[in-house]
Design a protein around this nucleic acid. Structure first.
Length: 952
RNA sequence: GCCCAGAUGGUGGAAUUGGUAGACACGAGGGACUUAAAAUCCCUUGGCCUAACAGCCGUACGGGUUCGAGUCCCGUUCCGGGCACCA
């Protein structure tokens, strides 16, 4: 009786043994090079894992195991991003504490993950919602609060340094200007002024510079969720979670000065191996724009305002100015005659939501009544107010050049303002000419006695450069780089998040002493905001800070002398996920986020795997967060994730049945067009190869018990479509079920076989038989008919070695390139070949097991043990490829065409060209083509091809 | 509108990066074994034409470069992703 591939027994056995022997436990080992593999940790939702979730984990696990076999000390941890909205929404609906449901979900996830055979070191698990973890989230926040960003050194520094500066020099820099420090708004004051201010005033001024600060800003307020949201959490004017409307509202919120790091975030992209598309997305999000700031004087006054432009070359085509409605200048420039009209317009703008403005882009605006002087021409141009100019970008004011900007053009046409073209040949009668190319006209052409600006005849690029130089030389403004990247709003009016380690002493925020961290999330009965509109933490009774006893106390004790109220906001989801990779290095350290030793050893993540949907959220925040930790000396690497792989989404493959309208009769796919039918989703688990299991269908829902069917060839064929995998589409496939029916090794193999890791693709359980059949074939290779191991000490044949080394080459390079999907056919071919060769050589079989171990660890362990090994296959050395087994200098299949002969040869890539020619021309296969012909030339392609061109 | 990625059989997808297009797998059809089914094994499977051999066409579409193009260049269409009154 042949030995059966009993995957259930094998997988159970090895799972238990791995746990018992702590096979996947890792520590710092200075004798081995490290390799850090990381998956984006999951948010444990109530629905559990579907078959799409493990895709990235499997891909990274294969890589981790491969690296381990290569001799690396591999860190491959896993944890849970466990603070966030869904758990809280669920708590509101059911009254269950989010901690309870979150931990239940985690247990469920763990159970599912354990079945798939990952090499995670679970001793290093982290959960963002546990105090020993968020201790360090709070700690980092306090460090940011106590830091500012020096633009000159492009680095975060302790706020004390800035205070000391203010005390001696105010905001004056060494060269007499204003110190270059990242801030919310430019401020200017002297040391005397600073020293004369009280605590309150100083605190407010410092907020302008801190990296974590309280800011009065326009925020995305989501009334339905009762909280503010970050920019990346809002898409098309609605919340990403739930799709609720979002409105702009001015609120005092905690913010992170992410914008300070704009340039470093941009520069850092050049040093990391991420996909071009993600880098591109981040570049767009950061939105660097090089331009010029120019000051305009309001006609008849001494007041000046500054505009930002990237088209300094168009100064001579400015026909009007535009201010954003929210701009503070609006009040200054509005003349009494225009006041009524302006106020009406401001009201009108206010009434429109962000979303309405986006959908309806109609041109609106109002004249302010004032004029500004163009510093280049001395001309007066009217100042208008329009909402096509944004308050939050640049200076909230622009110079309008309708001839060369489509938005200015639309506005000029709408209200009837002049349009002056500045580029030769530009036709602006129908639309503006926005391209930055061409030769400048209608600008100064002769140098005036004072050495003025000459632009006519220059290209646009030259004109921009010349104007920039002129502006700087004449003190009209300055060259300026603007970034689109905004500061992140860092507070949420929710319960299930990290509490801010902050209390308020007479309204001034104070940090809870570092030694008293973590500040634990208090229990509350009710997760909804309080009746007075306070966030849910307002419901916590024990939520006041006793400064003397340094502990949290009942808020009834608040006396504003020694006991003060604690912050009611909590931190957003990205707080906990921004530095978690550091924590895995040293997860149980209660003295530091990570010890310098652990940080020095593990450095940063070598391979990070996760979805591309985090491109402008987590992947920006964690880079920012880590750059900050780098600046303060906690992390030794500036970029957290050296290489990033974005796994594609696994979509669902839904099945449909077609019901004839107003009946309970269902018609098979091929015949449905003969009837008036409605497609209805049917559970994919009762459909096999698109054939409906009719009995299961009748039992599925009571109303289908009496259903009738119109069949084709005796079967009911279902339609199908690729959709998102979700419960409502009845297309969710659970990995547990696959593991139960086919085994984890088959699941792992099939998930990789489905297609390139980085590509989105639909899940179709039907193909899984092929992967399972392969594993059985592979298994059979090792056992004879009596069920005995058939490995012996015979020397491998040349054929054996060729098959093996072809495989080693293919699999090694595939793993390096993450194209696992093409390794699996290589395994199939090699297995078939070795089986046909009746390969018995232990040497070959052992290497074969070592090769498949990263993909299918359970079966590999079983066979490794059967081959007589007592150590784990995880440490089986990765087979070395040797080209000599593949190379034969033989001619294959000569092809004749158009007076040429083409040969396919196999020869080493470094073979000299002459040698290749000699081989080709002397090959017996070539003789009949070459006989009596004259060779004109030969074309050699390194490695394999030679074309021989014959005369005539 | 701008930027990025893509389009290959009934299906998922290969193609050593310019060298026999469709590997491998699924599905489908045929056959073997079996009382039967399941499992397993073997054959066929891009299209057209043909009894067969052969032949022609074929990698979204139209051109081009090349001895040779799925691959490179130009243009078009379609699908996906990002950014977007960002001056």
């Amino acid at each position: 009786m042949a030995k059966e591939y009993n995957f259930r027994e094998i997988e159970k056995k090895w799972h238990e043994r791995w746990v018992a022997q702590k096979t996947y436990k890792v520590g710092e080992d200075p004798n081995r090079p490290k390799f850090y593999v990381l998956n984006m940790f999951p948010y444990p939702s109530g629905a559990g894992l579907h078959v799409g979730h493990p895709l990235g984990y499997i891909a990274s696990d294969i890589y981790a195991r491969y690296k381990r076999q290569q001799g690396f000390n591999v860190l491959n941890p896993m944890g849970y991003d466990s603070y966030g909205l869904p758990a809280e929404q669920y708590a509101i609906q059911t009254g269950q504490h989010p901690e309870k449901t979150t931990f239940q979900n985690i247990d469920r996830y763990r159970e599912q993950l354990d079945k798939i055979g990952f090499s995670f070191d679970w001793d290093r698990e982290v959960r963002t919602c546990t105090p020993d973890y968020y201790h360090w989230t709070q700690w980092a926040f306090q460090k940011m609060y106590n830091s500012f960003f020096c633009l000159k050194h492009q680095k975060a520094m302790p706020i004390e340094k800035l205070i000391a500066r203010f005390e001696t020099k105010g905001t004056q820099s060494d060269d007499g200007g204003i110190i270059k420090v990242a801030c919310s708004e430019e401020m200017q004051f002297t040391a005397d002024e600073w020293n004369s201010w009280d605590e309150q005033r100083k605190s407010e001024v410092l907020m302008n510079y801190r990296l974590a600060f309280l800011g009065e800003t326009m925020v995305n307020w989501c009334p339905e969720l009762g909280t503010v949201l970050a920019n990346d959490e809002v898409v098309d004017g609605v919340s990403v979670r739930g799709g609720y409307p979002v409105v702009q509202k001015k609120m005092r919120q905690w913010c992170l000065r992410v914008s300070a790091y704009s340039q470093r975030l941009l520069d850092g992209l050049e040093t990391i191996q991420w996909s071009e598309s993600i880098k591109e997305t981040q570049k767009n999000w950061i939105g660097r724009s090089e331009g010029t700031e120019v000051r305009f004087r309001i006609t008849g006054t001494d007041e000046e305002f500054t505009i930002f432009t990237t088209r300094a070359d168009t100064m001579f085509g400015v026909t009007f100015m535009v201010l954003a409605p929210e701009s503070e200048l609006v009040q200054k420039v509005t003349t009494p005659e225009q006041r009524k009209a302006v106020e009406a317009y401001l009201e009108q703008v206010k009434a429109r939501t962000e979303r309405e403005r986006m959908i309806d882009k109609k041109v609106t605006g109002v004249f302010s009544g004032s004029y500004a002087v163009n510093p280049f021409t001395g001309e007066d141009v009217p100042i208008w107010i329009s909402d096509y100019v944004l308050a939050g970008y640049g200076t909230g004011a622009i110079m309008a050049v309708p001839a060369h900007d489509s938005r200015d053009y639309a506005f000029a046409k709408h209200v009837g303002l002049p349009i002056v073209p500045l580029i030769e040949g530009a036709d602006v009668s129908e639309e503006s000419y926005d391209a930055k190319e061409g030769i400048v006209i209608n600008s100064p052409s002769h140098p005036n006695p004072e050495g003025g600006l000459v632009l006519n005849g220059l290209t646009v690029k030259e004109a921009i450069a010349a104007t920039k130089k002129f502006v700087e030389a004449n003190g009209l403004g300055r060259v300026k780089v603007n970034y689109r990247l905004r500061d992140a709003i860092f507070s949420r009016q929710r319960y299930w998040g990290e509490p801010f380690p902050v209390y308020y002493k007479h309204g001034i925020p104070q940090m809870i002493p570092e030694e008293c961290l973590p500040l634990e999330l208090p229990q509350v009965e009710n997760f909804l905001p309080t009746a007075t509109g306070e966030p849910p933490l307002g419901n916590a009774q024990i939520w006041a800070w006793d400064e003397v006893n340094r502990k949290v106390v009942d808020k009834a004790l608040i006396d504003e002398k020694t006991v003060f109220p604690i912050e009611l906001y909590t931190m957003p989801g990205f707080a906990g996920s921004s530095a978690y990779y550091l924590r895995y290095m040293d997860p149980h350290n209660n003295q530091a986020l990570v010890s310098p030793e652990a940080d020095q050893y593990w450095q940063n993540v070598d391979l990070y795997v996760g979805g591309s949907e985090h491109a402008t959220g987590h992947l920006i925040y964690s880079r920012f967060w880590n750059k900050f930790l780098f600046d303060i000396g906690v992390s030794c690497k500036e970029e957290p994730f050296q290489k990033l792989i974005n796994q594609g989404m696994i979509q669902g493959r839904s099945n449909f049945v077609y019901r004839i309208k107003d009946t309970n009769t269902f018609v098979s796919l091929g015949l449905k067009d003969q009837y008036d039918t409605t497609p209805i989703h049917v559970d994919v688990n009762i459909v096999k190869n698109d054939v409906l299991d009719i009995e299961a269908f009748k039992a599925w829902r009571p109303e289908y018990a009496t259903a009738e069917f119109v069949l084709e060839e005796g079967r009911y064929i279902c339609g199908w479509a690729v959709e998102k995998m979700s419960k409502s589409m009845y297309n969710v496939v659970n990995p547990d079920l696959i593991v139960e029916n086919y085994g984890a090794d088959t699941l792992r193999l099939y998930e990789m076989f489905l297609g390139p890791v980085e590509q989105s693709k639909p899940w179709d359980t039907n193909g899984i038989d092929g992967s399972h059949r392969f594993l059985r074939k592979f298994w059979t290779l090792f056992w004879d008919k009596e069920g005995n191991l058939q490995a012996d000490d015979s020397e491998p044949t040349a054929e054996n070695l060729k098959s093996l080394h072809k495989l080693i080459k293919k699999v090694s390079s595939d793993i390096e390139e993450f194209s696992y999907n093409t390794s699996i056919p290589a395994f199939m071919v090699a297995t078939t070949e070795l089986s046909q060769q009746h390969c018995r050589s232990r040497k070959v079989l052992e290497q074969l097991v070592a090769l498949i171990a990263p993909f299918c660890p359970h079966i590999a362990e079983e066979l490794w043990e059967a081959l007589g090994h007592t150590t784990t296959v995880c440490d089986a050395p990765w087979p070395k490829f040797d080209e000599k087994y593949l190379v034969e200098s033989t001619v294959k299949m000569p092809v004749q065409f158009n007076g040429k002969v083409r040969f396919t040869l196999e020869f080493p890539a470094d073979t000299p060209k002459e040698e290749v020619e000699r081989l080709a021309l002397s090959a017996p296969e070539a003789a009949k083509y070459l006989e009596g012909q004259q060779v004109v030339k030969t074309i050699v392609v390194p490695g394999r091809i030679i074309n021989i061109v014959l005369k005539g």
